[in-house]
Amino acid sequence: MTRISLTGANGFLGWHTRGAAHAQGISFAPIAVGDDFDLAAATDAISGTDRLIHIAGVNRASDPEVLEGNIRFAQQLASALDRATPAPSVVVFANSTQAGNGTTYGAAKQEAADILRGAAGRAGAEFVDLHLPNLFGEHGRPFYNSVVATFSHLLASGGNPEIDQDRELTLLHAQNAADALLGSVDDDALAALDARETVTGLLTRLREISSVYSRGGEIPDIAHPFDRDLFNTYRAAAFPNGTPIRLRRHADNRGSFFEIVRSHGGAGQSSFSTTVSGVTRGDHYHRRKVERFTVISGEATIKLRKLFSTEVFEFRLDGTSPASIDMPTMWAHNITNVGETDLYTSFWSNELFDSERPDTIAEPV
């Protein structure tokens, strides 16, 4: 099994990297830097791993703190790398496209890269200096990690985002960045995954996503991967508000009818299952796939848990009042028949199932 060690494991990109590593069967050892740095513990965490990934950094502080913090973190990591036995074969730095741009932050990232490059050279390791643009994705901190997180939070909570300054952004979803840090996407392929959009255009996209999804869980046009990633980011900000999605029943003397999914664009695949009493299905998560469970008949509980957390959300659904639940990406989920009769469930996803790339990773709730 491949093993990695990484700093910043509890941050935004660190969480996404851990999730991507888990999906690929890669184990990880976290490394604390800064005031919690321990040379012996860091050396032990690095020793014997295949890949060392440095994510931790300081980007929101005074200029002296930004400069000192980023350099200090790199020096601490370099001191541990110098002592690691055996040293990893690859050292990866989550650098920024702002490196060397004349700002204090750019200077700090550039010097940190130089420090790590030197340490990797002394250890005989390949050094990968990965220059990342603006990152966005599920569970980013609003007013901190990205404008996407801020807009998503405000729209999901009924706010009205305003634009202070419009400019073009280069955006990359955090799961794509995580794949690059892990070495499963090369630089050329990563550049093709960038999206360029103005702040105004970004807000327009997210307003449309919010408007469509608020109409009883209608699915916006997510045919393009960038729009899908924005939708998943928005859904993460909105959850668990609006969950479950209550379906409107149309009934007459012939029986009843209700819509399960109304999609405004993109692929889709529907399936159906019966589940006997007491049986649980699922216990997996998805990195990018949008998936909806709809209980049509019977009684069920649906449970969800965010990766690397312990809090479990549980929803009770009954086919007498049909309802749907959309599974947030990077959340383990399952469904259990808690009734005495068979459970009838409809499943919808935004992509056709591909056995070579199923995007379904086993993980118990």
Rank of each mutant, 00 (worst) to 15 (best):
R196V: 02
S211I: 00
A180R: 15
A32P: 01
D342K: 05
N145Q: 03
F93N: 04
F136Y: 12
A236P: 01
G298E: 13
R60N: 14
D82A: 12
L247Q: 13
H224L: 13
D82S: 09
N95F: 02
A123Q: 01
G298F: 10
S96D: 04
D129W: 13
L52Q: 10
T301G: 01
V92K: 10
I296W: 08
L116P: 04
L202T: 05
A32V: 01
D221G: 06
A80P: 00
D44L: 11
R18N: 08
I245W: 04
R83L: 15
A42K: 06
V312W: 15
W331E: 08
A32D: 10
T341V: 03
F136Q: 03
G158C: 03
R117V: 00
E162A: 12
T198V: 05
T85N: 03
R3I: 06
L206H: 06
I219E: 09
G11R: 14
R215G: 01
I4C: 11
P64L: 13
G48H: 08
L352S: 06
E311L: 02
V92D: 04
E291Q: 15
F293I: 10
D129P: 04
T49N: 13
H139M: 03
R246L: 14
F239D: 06
D50W: 03
G137F: 06
A125R: 11
G102Q: 04
T294R: 13
Y285K: 10
S263D: 07
F258M: 09
V66S: 07
P30K: 11
G25A: 09
E162S: 14
F127K: 12
L135C: 04
T301S: 05
E311Y: 02
Y105T: 00
D229F: 14
H264S: 08
R122I: 07
S349C: 10
S321N: 05
G278Q: 07
P244E: 02
T274L: 14
A40P: 02
A45Y: 12
V365D: 01
E356Q: 13
V290G: 03
T43N: 02
E351W: 05
L352R: 15
T345W: 05
R262W: 05
I31P: 08
Q24Y: 09
D221L: 06
A107Y: 10
E65C: 05
A323V: 01
H264P: 00
T2S: 14
R292H: 03
S89C: 04
A119D: 03
F151A: 04
S271P: 00
F226E: 03
N95W: 00
A94V: 00
A300S: 14
T103L: 08
I4T: 10
V261C: 07
L171A: 07
A192D: 14
L181Q: 08
F136K: 05
G102W: 06
E291H: 15
H264K: 15
Q165T: 14
L77C: 00
K306M: 08
R249M: 15
P240T: 05
V279H: 15
P133I: 04
R305A: 11
Q75H: 12
